[in-house]
């Protein structure tokens, strides 16, 4: 830990990967929107047979 300059700024991506709660939010949001919400909307939008 002490071998690298300890005031080097931590890059953004590393900060992201070090934030489990942020990742939790993203990991739930992504499939909720892309898979479930989009899918459910298509099911609801199915037309009724004439």
């Amino acid at each position: 830990m002490s071998d690298t300059g300890s005031n080097e700024k931590i890059p953004f991506m590393q900060q992201l990967l070090d934030s489990p709660f942020l990742l939790l939010a993203i990991g739930i949001l992504s499939p909720m929107v892309l898979y479930i919400l989009w899918g459910v909307m298509e099911v609801i939008a199915t037309p009724i047979a004439q």
Binding site: I26, G39, E42
Partner: peptide, 27 residues
């Protein structure tokens, strides 16, 4: 994985009615 792995739930719905190919392919 965190971002995309769970989209693969669509594997089970590829020959189901009423879902678009866009939804199927993307997921």
């Amino acid at each position: 994985y965190i971002l995309f792995l769970q989209l693969a739930s669509a594997h089970h719905l590829l020959v189901d009615p009423a879902l678009s190919s866009e939804w199927k392919i993307f997921n």
